[in-house]
Design a protein around this nucleic acid. Structure first.
Length: 559
RNA sequence: UGGGGUAUCGCCAAGCGGUAAGGCACAAGGUUUUGAUCCUUGCAUCCCCAGGUUCGAAUCCUGGUACCCCAGCCA
C-alpha cells in the first residue's frame, strides 16, 4: 500500500504526510514497537503495534521490534518469547529487524563517556533518598548535587570503575548535568546509569553491572536504528525535551521525532501491566492467557480473530484525547468477523430430553445442514436426526404468550434444519423438574413449511444418541465496573472483579460434526454465540469450548 | 501564573475559515428455518464557556472552566 490509502486520517498520518512533503527524513518512514519484556502484551499494546507496523506498511516504510530491556530485575526470556508470538499472531512481521536495547549497551557506554568528556554528565554519590530530596517538588526547584562539579577526569575514572564493579548497588549514579531548577522535573539531572549487581540479564548475562535508564537508552536506540517517527504514549510527552537533549548534546546524525498519542482505555477491562501481573500472581485468573484477560494471548485463547483486533484498533482511531472505549466496539468487530467466517453448529448448552413419539425407534436420518447459511461455498455438514433429542431448557415453556417464539406445550416449533414438532406432554420428576418432553413431528415439514399454518419459532437441537458431551465455558467481562483501575472510591481494583465472569457448563451436548474441532477454531453455536475450541483444555478426546462472544440478542433486552 | 496534554452526539472519531463525515450504541420498519445476519430509515441549527476578528468561525484571537499526566537509581 502506498500513501494513496483509504485508511482514516489521524494526526500522526498528517505529520508523516507533511514530513514526506518537506523531505524531513528523506521521505523515509521507519517506526518501531518497543515493549519491555516484563509482562504479556495487552489490548493497549495491540493499538500501538497496529499503529507502528501499520504506519510503516502504509508509507512503504519499516517497523522494528525492539525489546526495551534495560531493567533486568523485572524482565525475562519467557516474556520475550510471549511478546514475539503475540506480535506475529497479530499479523505483523519485523523480518530480520529484531533488536534489543541491550544490543547497544557498549555503544551506549561510549556515548556516556562522551557526555562526561563534554561536561554533560557526572557521577553522583547521593543515595536514593537524598536524590529525591535534592530533586525538589513540582512547584519548587531542586538544588544541585554536591557532586555535580566533579572534574571530568574524576567522573571518567569513577564511571569506568562503576562498570568494573567497584561500587555497591545504589552507591553511585551517572547523571546528566542539565538544570536542577527546570520546571520539567525530568530535566533535573536525570539518572543515566545505575549499579545492579546480582542480576542476570536475559540477553547479556552478567557482562554488565551498570544498566542504562529508559530516557537515555530509548532515544539513542531509536537513533542507532534510524527511526524516523518514534511513536509513544502521552505520559512520555514530558520526556520529549530530554529525548531531544540527549540526541542534540551527543550530536548524533539521526534525530528521530517523538510523537505521543493517548493510550487506550477499554471499559470493564484493565490495561495496566502491573495490575494484570497482580491478577496472575495472586491467582485471581488462570494465568496470562486466561480467556477473560485483556492480554493478546487471552484474547487469542478466547477466540478473538487477529483480524478483528486489528479492525478494532483501526476503528478506535489515534488521537491525543483521553478516551474510554466501550466494549461494544470490540464485540462488534469480533461478531462482524466471526459472522462471516465461523462454521455453524448446533449445541445444546443445558439439555432437556425430547422424545418424538411418532418417530420410529430404530431410525436415523442423516440430515444435511449448511455450514454457513449465507455462504454455500463453505459446504455442508451431516446432522443425524433420531427419535430422542435434546433441546435447551430455556427453549421450552409450559405456558407463554405468543411473543415467546420457542416450544410451548401444545404448540409447534421448527427444529432448525429438521422438522416441525408439537409438544404433547410434559414429564416431570417428583420435584417438579421437567425430565422429558413428548412431542410429535410432522414428516411433511422437512425443508418445507407446514400446510395451512405458520410456525415462526426455530430452535436448535442435538440427537441424543449422536451428540457428544462437552464442557462449555461461558465467559463474561472480568470486571463489573467500567473503570476498575481508576475508581478512587476503593483502594484495590480487585473488588470490582466480576464473580460471574466464568460459568462452566459440564453437561452440554454438541452435534457430532464438532468432535474433530481443532483447538483455536471458532464456531457459531447457532442462536447462542461464537465458541472457540480451547487450545489448552481440549485433550484426550475431551472437548472444551470457550464462549468468545454472544450473538446480538435483541430478545434479551425485551424479555 | 510549576510543567506538559486534552476538550466535536451516550462512546470512539473526522473536520485545519465557507456553513457538522463515519463507526459503535440506540430507535422504527422490511427479509429470514439462527429473536443472528442482511436491508431501509431516524439519531449534534450545533462543536467546554464567554467575549472578539470576519460577509462567514468547531476551525483565528483573548479570557475563563473542566479533566488527564509528571516529583522511580521503572518503562
Amino acid at each position: 500500500m502506498s500513501e494513496e490509502t483509504t485508511k482514516p486520517s489521524n494526526f500522526i498520518r498528517n505529520i508523516i504526510k507533511a514530513d514526506n512533503e518537506s523531505g524531513k527524513h528523506g521521505g523515509r518512514v521507519h517506526t518501531r514497537f518497543p515493549p519491555e519484556p516484563n509482562g504479556y502484551l495487552h489490548i493497549g499494546h495491540a493499538k500501538s503495534i497496529c499503529l507502528n507496523f501499520g504506519l510503516a506498511n502504509d508509507y512503504d516504510g519499516l517497523c522494528n521490534l525492539r525489546f526495551d530491556d534495560t531493567n533486568p530485575q523485572k524482565e525475562n526470556e519467557e516474556f520475550v518469547n510471549a511478546i514475539k508470538e503475540d506480535v506475529r499472531w497479530l499479523g505483523f512481521d519485523w523480518q530480520e529487524r529484531l533488536f534489543f536495547s541491550s544490543n547497544y549497551f557498549e555503544q551506549l557506554y561510549t556515548y556516556a563517556v562522551q557526555l562526561i568528556e563534554q561536561g554533560n554528565a557526572y557521577v553522583c554519590d547521593l543515595n536514593a533518598e537524598q536524590t529525591r530530596e535534592y530533586r525538589g517538588t513540582l512547584t519548587e526547584p531542586g538544588k544541585n548535587s554536591p557532586y555535580r562539579d566533579r572534574s571530568i577526569a574524576e567522573n571518567l575514572d569513577l564511571f569506568s570503575r562503576m562498570r568494573a564493579g567497584e561500587f555497591v548497588d545504589g552507591s553511585k549514579l551517572l547523571r546528566a548535568k542539565i538544570d536542577m531548577a527546570s520546571p520539567n522535573v525530568n530535566m533535573r539531572d536525570p539518572a543515566l546509569y545505575r549499579i545492579r549487581h546480582d542480576v542476570v540479564h536475559h540477553q547479556t548475562g552478567t557482562e554488565w553491572c551498570i544498566y542504562p535508564m529508559y530516557d537515555y537508552t530509548h532515544c539513542l536506540s531509536d537513533s542507532i536504528e534510524g527511526i524516523t517517527h518514534s511513536v509513544c504514549t502521552l505520559e512520555f510527552a514530558d520526556h520529549r525535551p530530554l529525548y531531544d537533549w540527549f540526541l542534540d548534546t551527543l550530536k548524533v546524525e539521526c534525530h528521530p521525532q517523538q510523537i505521543e498519542f493517548s493510550r487506550l482505555n477499554l471499559q470493564y477491562s484493565i490495561t495496566s501491566k502491573r495490575k494484570l501481573t497482580k491478577l496472575v500472581e495472586e491467582g485471581l485468573v488462570e494465568g496470562w492467557s486466561d480467556p477473560r484477560m485483556s492480554t493478546i494471548s487471552g484474547m487469542r485463547r478466547r477466540g478473538y480473530p487477529a483480524a478483528a483486533i486489528r479492525e478494532f484498533c483501526e476503528r478506535i482511531g489515534v488521537t491525543k484525547s483521553d478516551n474510554s472505549v466501550e466494549m461494544e466496539i470490540l464485540d462488534a468487530c469480533i461478531r462482524e468477523n466471526l459472522n462471516e467466517n465461523a462454521t455453524r453448529a448446533m449445541v445444546v448448552l443445558d439439555p432437556v430430553k425430547v422424545i418424538i413419539t411418532n418417530y420410529p425407534e430404530d431410525k436415523t436420518e442423516e440430515l444435511i445442514a449448511p455450514k454457513h447459511p449465507q455462504n454455500e461455498s463453505m459446504g455442508t455438514r451431516v446432522v443425524p436426526f433420531s427419535r430422542e433429542l435434546y433441546i435447551d431448557r430455556a427453549d421450552f415453556k409450559e405456558e407463554a404468550n405468543n411473543k415467546f417464539k420457542r416450544l410451548v406445550k401444545d404448540k409447534e416449533v421448527r427444529l432448525r434444519n429438521a422438522y416441525v414438532i408439537r409438544c404433547d406432554e410434559v414429564i416431570k420428576d417428583e420435584k417438579g423438574e421437567i425430565t422429558e418432553l413428548h412431542c410429535s413431528y410432522d414428516p411433511a415439514t422437512l425443508g418445507a413449511n407446514p400446510e395451512g399454518r405458520k410456525v415462526k419459532g426455530v430452535i436448535h437441537w442435538v440427537s441424543a444418541a449422536h451428540g457428544v458431551k462437552a464442557e462449555v465455558r461461558l465467559y463474561d467481562r472480568l470486571f463489573n465496573h467500567p473503570h476498575p483501575d481508576s475508581d478512587k472510591e476503593v483502594d484495590d481494583f480487585t473488588v470490582h472483579l466480576n464473580s460471574d465472569s466464568l460459568v462452566t457448563l459440564t453437561e452440554s451436548v454438541v452435534e457430532r460434526s464438532l468432535v474433530d474441532a481443532q483447538a483455536g477454531t471458532v464456531y457459531q453455536f447457532e442462536r447462542e454465540g461464537y465458541f472457540c475450541a480451547d487450545s489448552e483444555l481440549c485433550r484426550d478426546g475431551k472437548l472444551v469450548f470457550n464462549r468468545t462472544v454472544t450473538l446480538r440478542d435483541t430478545w434479551a433486552k425485551i424479555a
